[in-house]
């Protein structure tokens, strides 16, 4: 079956959605909490734990307040999209499945240099790590490919295979665009062609100003403490999924504090440890519920 090569940003998403649906993944929607990466969606963090098989794929908007550049930088954003795929247990031909997804997007591995370069993934705030690679296409990192070994400090059995596509980067590469805001978002030949900039440039400007200048550190610190307390209370009640939501809130509040530069290196470690303890608590409780 011949597939039409994508022509715009949303085509890349739709192509991946269809492709992974064909591989038996549940196509989920973004999680409705502010998160720094697609991994933090409970569909990955929590579902990678426990013995039950699981296959899901979804787009996740990711917020990294510190990466804001007021819309000035051609490829750095404080809000961007990740495409996340999680398969448990990892199928033995996962590399092949992944490469086929690239081919579907229009990357011909006999024209472009696709390479698996060592990159061990670690997310200290959720006590997770795995081994894998950055996938390079002509020297550009287009995906992160990881075999999860631990989440929330617990061994992952069976192992999950996790794929994260940096959608903007991938699309910029495929379409030969040097500035993210110039990416065609919808069909460039449609009646209302929209670029990525039409949709997100103003957001980058305003959110960067908020992240670096207008957010209220004292309030965020208070909210962090509240979120932490709530997550702890809910965990005691065995109310794991809501507790995880509050863990995510705490994590994002920490990122906002960090962006304001009010966190010293020593405090930083302690904040990370606090979020990690919550995440570990959620992971442990969830894993127990799955046995």
């Amino acid at each position: 079956m011949a597939h039409k090569a994508p022509r715009c940003f949303q085509d890349v998403i739709l192509t991946l959605q269809n492709y992974w649906a064909e591989q038996g993944c549940a196509i989920l929607q973004p999680y409705d909490e502010q998160v720094g990466a697609g991994t933090l969606h409970p569909a990955t963090t929590l579902r990678s734990l426990g013995p039950k098989p699981w296959r899901a794929a979804y787009v996740q908007p990711s917020r990294r307040p510190k990466d804001g550049r007021y819309g000035d930088n051609p490829n750095r954003l404080q809000h961007y999209y990740q495409y996340q795929v999680i398969l448990k247990p990892n199928p033995p031909n996962l590399q092949e499945l992944y490469l086929n997804s690239l081919a579907r997007i229009g990357i011909d591995p006999l024209l472009h240099d696709v390479r698996f370069v060592e990159d061990d993934w670690e997310n200290p705030t959720v006590g997770a790590w795995g081994l894998g690679w950055e996938v390079w296409c002509d020297g550009m990192e287009v995906s992160q490919y990881t075999y999860f070994q631990q989440v929330g400090g617990l061994d992952v059995r069976p192992v999950s295979g996790e794929l994260t596509y940096g959608l903007e980067r991938l699309a910029m590469y495929v379409f030969g665009v040097d500035r993210v805001y110039d990416l065609p978002f919808n069909d460039p030949d449609s009646a209302t062609p929209l670029t990525y900039g039409d949709i997100f440039l103003e957001n980058e400007k305003q959110q960067s100003r908020f992240n670096f200048e207008l957010s209220d550190p004292e309030q965020n610190l208070r909210w962090f403490t509240d979120a932490e307390a709530t997550a702890t209370r809910l965990l005691k009640e065995g109310n794991v999924l809501p507790a995880f939501d509050y863990t995510l809130k705490a994590s994002h509040l920490f990122n906002l504090l960090d962006a304001r530069g009010v966190v010293s290196p020593t405090e930083r470690q302690s904040f990370i440890a606090r979020v990690r303890d919550l995440a570990k608590g959620c992971a442990t409780a969830w894993a127990e519920s799955q046995q």
Binding site: P89, N90, L131, Y147, V159
Partner: peptide
């Protein structure tokens, strides 16, 4: 130096 498990 670092090794991993796969599948089950």
């Amino acid at each position: 130096p670092k090794s991993m498990r796969s599948q089950s």
